[in-house]
Protein backbone atom coordinates (compact mmCIF):
# COMPACT_ATOMS: atom_id res chain seq x y z
CA UNK A 1 0.00 0.00 0.00
CA UNK A 2 2.96 2.32 0.56
CA UNK A 3 4.35 1.96 -2.93
CA UNK A 4 5.14 5.23 -4.63
CA UNK A 5 2.64 6.11 -7.33
CA UNK A 6 3.99 7.38 -10.62
CA UNK A 7 2.95 10.96 -11.51
CA UNK A 8 1.42 9.72 -14.78
CA UNK A 9 -0.91 7.39 -12.89
CA UNK A 10 -1.91 10.25 -10.60
CA UNK A 11 -2.77 12.44 -13.60
CA UNK A 12 -4.82 9.70 -15.31
CA UNK A 13 -6.74 8.93 -12.11
CA UNK A 14 -7.26 12.68 -11.58
CA UNK A 15 -8.71 13.10 -15.07
CA UNK A 16 -11.04 10.12 -14.63
CA UNK A 17 -12.28 11.42 -11.28
CA UNK A 18 -12.78 14.88 -12.81
CA UNK A 19 -14.89 13.39 -15.61
CA UNK A 20 -17.02 11.55 -13.08
CA UNK A 21 -17.45 14.45 -10.68
CA UNK A 22 -17.60 17.45 -13.06
CA UNK A 23 -21.14 16.79 -14.37
CA UNK A 24 -22.35 16.54 -10.78
CA UNK A 25 -20.95 19.98 -10.00
CA UNK A 26 -22.83 21.64 -12.84
CA UNK A 27 -26.36 21.42 -11.32
CA UNK A 28 -24.92 22.45 -7.95
CA UNK A 29 -23.56 25.62 -9.53
CA UNK A 30 -26.71 26.29 -11.56
CA UNK A 31 -28.96 25.84 -8.56
CA UNK A 32 -27.64 28.99 -6.87
CA UNK A 33 -28.03 31.22 -9.94
CA UNK A 34 -30.05 34.38 -9.24
CA UNK A 35 -31.86 34.28 -12.60
CA UNK A 36 -35.42 33.22 -13.49
CA UNK A 37 -34.12 30.52 -15.87
CA UNK A 38 -31.17 28.11 -15.94
CA UNK A 39 -27.90 29.63 -17.09
CA UNK A 40 -24.37 28.46 -17.03
CA UNK A 41 -22.12 29.87 -15.68
CA UNK A 42 -24.48 30.97 -12.88
CA UNK A 43 -25.09 34.65 -12.27
CA UNK A 44 -25.29 36.01 -8.76
CA UNK A 45 -25.93 33.86 -5.70
CA UNK A 46 -29.16 32.89 -4.05
CA UNK A 47 -30.61 30.01 -2.06
CA UNK A 48 -34.18 30.93 -2.92
CA UNK A 49 -34.60 27.98 -5.30
CA UNK A 50 -33.83 25.60 -2.49
CA UNK A 51 -36.30 27.40 -0.25
CA UNK A 52 -38.88 27.20 -3.02
CA UNK A 53 -38.35 23.49 -3.61
CA UNK A 54 -38.40 22.62 0.06
CA UNK A 55 -41.55 24.70 0.59
CA UNK A 56 -43.27 23.02 -2.36
CA UNK A 57 -45.53 20.25 -1.01
CA UNK A 58 -45.42 18.37 -4.33
CA UNK A 59 -41.62 18.24 -4.33
CA UNK A 60 -41.49 17.28 -0.67
CA UNK A 61 -44.10 14.60 -1.14
CA UNK A 62 -42.25 13.07 -4.08
CA UNK A 63 -38.99 13.12 -2.19
CA UNK A 64 -40.47 11.45 0.87
CA UNK A 65 -42.29 8.94 -1.30
CA UNK A 66 -39.04 8.02 -3.09
CA UNK A 67 -37.33 7.55 0.27
CA UNK A 68 -40.12 5.30 1.48
CA UNK A 69 -40.17 3.31 -1.75
CA UNK A 70 -36.37 2.88 -1.81
CA UNK A 71 -36.35 1.79 1.84
CA UNK A 72 -39.05 -0.82 1.29
CA UNK A 73 -37.43 -2.06 -1.93
CA UNK A 74 -34.08 -2.37 -0.17
CA UNK A 75 -35.58 -4.42 2.64
CA UNK A 76 -37.50 -6.66 0.26
CA UNK A 77 -34.49 -7.12 -2.04
CA UNK A 78 -32.25 -8.05 0.90
CA UNK A 79 -34.90 -10.39 2.28
CA UNK A 80 -35.02 -12.27 -1.03
CA UNK A 81 -31.49 -11.62 -2.25
CA UNK A 82 -29.41 -12.74 0.72
CA UNK A 83 -30.93 -16.23 1.07
CA UNK A 84 -30.90 -16.59 -2.72
CA UNK A 85 -27.22 -15.66 -2.94
CA UNK A 86 -26.44 -18.00 -0.03
CA UNK A 87 -28.26 -20.85 -1.75
CA UNK A 88 -26.55 -20.24 -5.07
CA UNK A 89 -23.04 -20.02 -3.63
CA UNK A 90 -23.02 -22.49 -0.78
CA UNK A 91 -25.08 -25.36 -2.15
CA UNK A 92 -25.20 -27.25 -5.40
CA UNK A 93 -28.63 -26.54 -6.78
CA UNK A 94 -29.91 -28.08 -10.03
CA UNK A 95 -30.30 -25.40 -12.69
CA UNK A 96 -28.07 -23.03 -10.71
CA UNK A 97 -26.75 -21.19 -13.76
CA UNK A 98 -30.23 -20.81 -15.24
CA UNK A 99 -31.55 -19.32 -12.00
CA UNK A 100 -28.64 -16.91 -11.77
CA UNK A 101 -29.05 -15.90 -15.43
CA UNK A 102 -32.75 -15.25 -14.92
CA UNK A 103 -32.16 -13.12 -11.85
CA UNK A 104 -29.44 -11.07 -13.52
CA UNK A 105 -31.41 -10.61 -16.77
CA UNK A 106 -32.89 -7.20 -15.80
CA UNK A 107 -29.32 -5.89 -16.07
CA UNK A 108 -29.26 -6.94 -19.75
CA UNK A 109 -32.79 -6.22 -20.95
CA UNK A 110 -33.42 -2.44 -21.38
CA UNK A 111 -35.22 -1.21 -18.27
CA UNK A 112 -37.90 0.46 -20.35
CA UNK A 113 -38.79 -2.97 -21.79
CA UNK A 114 -38.92 -4.51 -18.32
CA UNK A 115 -41.19 -1.63 -17.28
CA UNK A 116 -43.61 -2.14 -20.18
CA UNK A 117 -43.67 -5.88 -19.61
CA UNK A 118 -44.51 -5.37 -15.94
CA UNK A 119 -47.22 -2.86 -16.80
CA UNK A 120 -48.83 -5.31 -19.23
CA UNK A 121 -48.59 -8.08 -16.70
CA UNK A 122 -50.21 -6.01 -13.96
CA UNK A 123 -52.90 -4.78 -16.38
CA UNK A 124 -53.62 -8.38 -17.35
CA UNK A 125 -53.96 -9.29 -13.70
CA UNK A 126 -56.24 -6.30 -13.23
CA UNK A 127 -54.03 -5.03 -10.43
CA UNK A 128 -54.63 -1.54 -9.07
CA UNK A 129 -52.24 -1.74 -6.12
CA UNK A 130 -49.74 0.86 -7.37
CA UNK A 131 -47.45 0.71 -4.36
CA UNK A 132 -47.16 -3.05 -4.59
CA UNK A 133 -46.49 -2.81 -8.31
CA UNK A 134 -43.75 -0.24 -7.79
CA UNK A 135 -42.14 -2.35 -5.07
CA UNK A 136 -42.23 -5.44 -7.28
CA UNK A 137 -40.93 -3.53 -10.31
CA UNK A 138 -38.07 -1.93 -8.39
CA UNK A 139 -37.20 -5.17 -6.63
CA UNK A 140 -36.87 -6.97 -9.97
CA UNK A 141 -34.36 -4.34 -11.04
CA UNK A 142 -32.55 -4.09 -7.70
CA UNK A 143 -32.22 -7.80 -6.94
CA UNK A 144 -29.28 -8.37 -9.32
CA UNK A 145 -27.23 -5.79 -7.42
CA UNK A 146 -27.91 -7.45 -4.08
CA UNK A 147 -27.27 -10.96 -5.41
CA UNK A 148 -24.07 -9.90 -7.13
CA UNK A 149 -22.45 -8.24 -4.14
CA UNK A 150 -23.69 -10.74 -1.56
CA UNK A 151 -22.58 -13.71 -3.70
CA UNK A 152 -19.18 -12.12 -4.13
CA UNK A 153 -18.74 -11.72 -0.38
CA UNK A 154 -20.06 -15.23 0.32
CA UNK A 155 -17.62 -16.72 -2.17
CA UNK A 156 -14.79 -14.96 -0.35
CA UNK A 157 -15.82 -16.38 3.00
CA UNK A 158 -13.06 -18.58 4.35
CA UNK A 159 -14.61 -21.97 5.09
CA UNK A 160 -11.66 -22.85 7.31
CA UNK A 161 -12.79 -20.16 9.75
CA UNK A 162 -16.14 -21.89 10.15
CA UNK A 163 -14.42 -25.20 10.87
CA UNK A 164 -12.09 -23.46 13.30
CA UNK A 165 -14.98 -21.80 15.12
CA UNK A 166 -16.86 -25.10 15.38
CA UNK A 167 -13.82 -26.91 16.76
CA UNK A 168 -13.37 -24.05 19.25
CA UNK A 169 -16.84 -24.85 20.54
CA UNK A 170 -19.15 -22.56 18.56
CA UNK A 171 -22.57 -24.09 17.83
CA UNK A 172 -23.89 -23.45 14.29
CA UNK A 173 -25.88 -20.31 15.13
CA UNK A 174 -22.84 -18.67 16.73
CA UNK A 175 -20.67 -19.68 13.75
CA UNK A 176 -23.18 -17.79 11.60
CA UNK A 177 -23.28 -14.65 13.74
CA UNK A 178 -19.67 -14.48 14.97
CA UNK A 179 -17.80 -15.74 11.94
CA UNK A 180 -19.86 -15.66 8.74
CA UNK A 181 -21.75 -12.45 9.39
CA UNK A 182 -18.67 -10.23 9.93
CA UNK A 183 -17.29 -11.52 6.65
CA UNK A 184 -20.42 -10.98 4.54
CA UNK A 185 -21.63 -7.80 6.21
CA UNK A 186 -19.71 -5.47 3.86
CA UNK A 187 -21.18 -7.28 0.85
CA UNK A 188 -24.72 -7.11 2.18
CA UNK A 189 -24.26 -3.47 3.04
CA UNK A 190 -22.89 -2.62 -0.38
CA UNK A 191 -25.77 -4.51 -2.01
CA UNK A 192 -28.23 -2.61 0.14
CA UNK A 193 -26.74 0.78 -0.77
CA UNK A 194 -26.73 -0.03 -4.48
CA UNK A 195 -30.28 -1.20 -4.19
CA UNK A 196 -31.40 1.94 -2.38
CA UNK A 197 -29.74 4.25 -4.88
CA UNK A 198 -30.95 2.32 -7.94
CA UNK A 199 -34.51 2.47 -6.63
CA UNK A 200 -34.22 6.12 -5.60
CA UNK A 201 -32.92 7.10 -9.06
CA UNK A 202 -35.17 4.86 -11.11
CA UNK A 203 -37.10 6.50 -13.91
CA UNK A 204 -37.85 3.86 -16.62
CA UNK A 205 -39.71 1.44 -14.33
CA UNK A 206 -41.57 4.04 -12.27
CA UNK A 207 -42.61 5.80 -15.47
CA UNK A 208 -44.90 2.87 -16.36
CA UNK A 209 -46.09 1.88 -12.92
CA UNK A 210 -46.51 5.13 -10.92
CA UNK A 211 -49.70 7.16 -10.55
CA UNK A 212 -50.49 10.61 -9.16
CA UNK A 213 -50.56 9.44 -5.56
CA UNK A 214 -47.34 7.47 -5.89
CA UNK A 215 -44.98 9.84 -7.64
CA UNK A 216 -41.21 9.29 -7.16
CA UNK A 217 -38.73 12.18 -7.40
CA UNK A 218 -37.26 11.32 -10.82
CA UNK A 219 -40.74 11.49 -12.36
CA UNK A 220 -41.43 14.75 -10.55
CA UNK A 221 -38.16 16.20 -11.83
CA UNK A 222 -39.08 15.27 -15.37
CA UNK A 223 -42.52 16.89 -15.20
CA UNK A 224 -41.00 20.06 -13.73
CA UNK A 225 -38.55 20.24 -16.62
CA UNK A 226 -41.48 20.01 -19.03
CA UNK A 227 -43.39 22.76 -17.23
CA UNK A 228 -40.68 25.33 -16.58
CA UNK A 229 -36.98 25.71 -16.81
CA UNK A 230 -35.95 27.61 -13.70
CA UNK A 231 -33.05 26.78 -11.37
CA UNK A 232 -35.38 24.92 -8.97
CA UNK A 233 -34.81 21.88 -11.22
CA UNK A 234 -31.10 22.17 -10.54
CA UNK A 235 -31.92 22.56 -6.85
CA UNK A 236 -33.87 19.28 -6.82
CA UNK A 237 -31.07 17.54 -8.70
CA UNK A 238 -28.54 18.97 -6.25
CA UNK A 239 -30.58 17.75 -3.30
CA UNK A 240 -30.63 14.26 -4.79
CA UNK A 241 -26.86 14.31 -5.33
CA UNK A 242 -26.18 15.59 -1.82
CA UNK A 243 -28.53 13.01 -0.37
CA UNK A 244 -26.76 10.12 -2.16
CA UNK A 245 -23.37 11.48 -1.07
CA UNK A 246 -24.53 11.75 2.53
CA UNK A 247 -25.80 8.20 2.43
CA UNK A 248 -22.44 6.88 1.24
CA UNK A 249 -20.55 9.06 3.74
CA UNK A 250 -22.64 7.92 6.70
CA UNK A 251 -22.20 4.30 5.78
CA UNK A 252 -18.49 4.78 5.24
CA UNK A 253 -18.27 6.40 8.69
CA UNK A 254 -20.28 3.70 10.42
CA UNK A 255 -19.00 0.61 8.65
CA UNK A 256 -15.99 1.84 6.69
CA UNK A 257 -13.66 1.43 9.65
CA UNK A 258 -14.36 -2.25 9.93
CA UNK A 259 -13.66 -2.60 6.21
CA UNK A 260 -10.33 -0.83 6.61
CA UNK A 261 -9.51 -3.06 9.57
CA UNK A 262 -10.16 -6.15 7.50
CA UNK A 263 -8.04 -4.91 4.63
CA UNK A 264 -5.07 -3.83 6.73
Amino acid sequence: MNETVSPLLKIVVGVILLMVVAPLVVPLLMSVSDTPYIVFPPQGFTLKWYAEVLANPEARGSFLFSLELAAIVTLVSLAFGVPCAAGLTRYRVPGQDAVLGLILSPLIVPLIVTGVALLQLFALLGSRATMLQLVIGHTVVCLPYVIRSVSASLLLVNRNLEDAAAVLGAPPHLVATKVIWPQVRPGILAGGIFCFIVSFDDYPISMWLADGNHFPVPLYLYTVIERSFDPSIAAIASLMIVFALLLVLVIEKVFGLSLARLAS
Binding site: N158, N160, L161, D163, A164, A165, A166, V167, L168, G169, A170, P171, P172, K178, V179, P182, Q183, S258, R261, L262
Partner: peptide, 29 residues
Amino acid sequence: PVHRRNLGMLFQNYALFPHLSVLENVAFG
Protein backbone atom coordinates in the same frame (compact mmCIF):
# COMPACT_ATOMS: atom_id res chain seq x y z
CA PRO B 1 -21.20 -32.61 16.95
CA VAL B 2 -17.91 -30.78 16.34
CA HIS B 3 -18.49 -28.00 18.83
CA ARG B 4 -19.06 -30.42 21.71
CA ARG B 5 -15.94 -32.54 21.27
CA ASN B 6 -13.69 -30.21 23.26
CA LEU B 7 -10.66 -30.62 21.01
CA GLY B 8 -7.99 -28.14 19.99
CA MET B 9 -7.05 -27.86 16.35
CA LEU B 10 -4.40 -26.07 14.35
CA PHE B 11 -5.24 -25.48 10.71
CA GLN B 12 -3.00 -25.36 7.69
CA ASN B 13 -3.29 -21.60 7.21
CA TYR B 14 -3.97 -20.93 10.90
CA ALA B 15 -7.60 -19.91 10.22
CA LEU B 16 -7.36 -16.92 12.56
CA PHE B 17 -10.47 -14.73 12.58
CA PRO B 18 -9.38 -11.67 10.59
CA HIS B 19 -12.00 -9.40 12.18
CA LEU B 20 -10.91 -10.14 15.74
CA SER B 21 -7.81 -8.96 17.58
CA VAL B 22 -5.17 -11.41 18.78
CA LEU B 23 -6.68 -11.44 22.28
CA GLU B 24 -10.22 -11.88 20.94
CA ASN B 25 -9.04 -14.75 18.76
CA VAL B 26 -7.47 -16.53 21.70
CA ALA B 27 -10.48 -15.80 23.90
CA PHE B 28 -12.97 -17.22 21.37
CA GLY B 29 -12.98 -20.77 22.71
